[in-house]
């Protein structure tokens, strides 16, 4: 005669079978263990959330604003304004929507223009994501009393810091710097978004430089592998007017730390 053990036997010594009722001892064990597991998971969420760093104070405004000044298309499209808000001249970098530089700036090079777009602000500085419409950049009558800007060298320097793209850094992405943002910054700069060099002074104060090639044109694509990494670079500091100094760097003068 075949031996037949009733299924309820599985409950007697705590043998668990998925399609049968859970034995009492196992049930009690699970009722103690599962809440503990969920608690550990939630505590993990709290610890990992707290381990994120401050992305920096930056904001992307939804309202459109206008700014007027002289537009330079090289090394990167920028508006040199006479008054950045405190009576001093300023530099407003110009970008397109997405990860694209303002290619249409070429036709307005050295013209006085009014540009409308959405400002991205970080600290005391803002850049403009120029509106996509054809009227977003409008020529103004020229002011002959204002000289056409030229690059004036200020001297060679060696600095440590990180190459970031100006759009994400100013609030398009938060954080818009560091390791996880490296490839986005590379794509942005490859698309024509102006690259910035972010360096911290001895007291931790941040200084920004607009990076360009020693020829005065845009940064060489050979520098792209260094974007987003801690680097040391040597180059010629320069000014184009405005409040954003330039750093003219050859890719061979960039070293990963």
């Amino acid at each position: 005669m075949p031996d037949v053990v009733p299924s309820k036997a599985s409950r007697e010594d705590g043998f668990y079978v998925g399609y049968l009722p859970v034995p009492g001892g196992v049930r009690t064990f699970l009722k103690r263990v599962l809440p503990l597991v969920v608690c550990v998971v939630v505590v993990g969420a709290l610890v990992l959330a707290r381990s994120q760093r401050d992305p920096g104070g930056a904001a992307w405004d939804s309202a459109t604003v206008s700014a007027s000044g002289r537009l330079v298309a090289t090394p990167y499209p920028a508006l040199l304004v006479n008054d950045r808000g405190d009576g001093r001249p300023g530099t407003v970098l110009l970008v397109e929507t997405g990860k694209h530089g303002l290619a249409r700036a070429e036709e307005f090079h050295n013209h006085r223009v009014t540009v409308s777009g959405r400002p991205l602000r970080r600290d005391a500085r803002f850049i403009l994501e120029v509106d996509p419409g054809p009227d977003a950049v409008k020529s103004l009558p020229d002011d002959p009393s204002r000289p056409i800007p030229v690059i004036i060298p200020l001297g060679r320097m060696t600095l440590r810091g990180e190459i970031v793209d100006s759009k994400c850094y100013h609030g398009a992405m938060k954080p818009g710097d560091g390791k996880t943002h490296k490839e986005c910054a590379t794509l942005c700069i490859a698309g024509g978004i102006p690259p910035l060099f972010l360096t911290a002074g001895p007291q931790g104060e941040t200084t920004l430089y607009l990076l360009a090639d020693p020829s005065g044109g845009p940064l060489s694509p050979a520098a792209l592998p260094f974007v987003g990494d801690p680097v040391e670079l040597s180059g010629e500091a320069a000014t184009l007017g405005g409040d954003l100094p330039l750093l003219l760097v050859a890719p061979g003068d960039i070293r990963r730390l």
């Binding site: 969420a45 959330a49 992305p55 904001a59």
Partner: peptide
């Protein structure tokens, strides 16, 4: 599903409470 939802909710709420206003992380990130 409840455990995963609790994790994601806890992570989002704590991040939002830690970094506020101009210092808030992008929603997508």
């Amino acid at each position: 599903v409840a455990g995963a939802a609790a994790y994601i909710a806890a992570f989002v709420v704590v991040s939002r409470a830690t970094w506020t206003a101009d210092h808030a992380l992008s929603d997508e990130i």
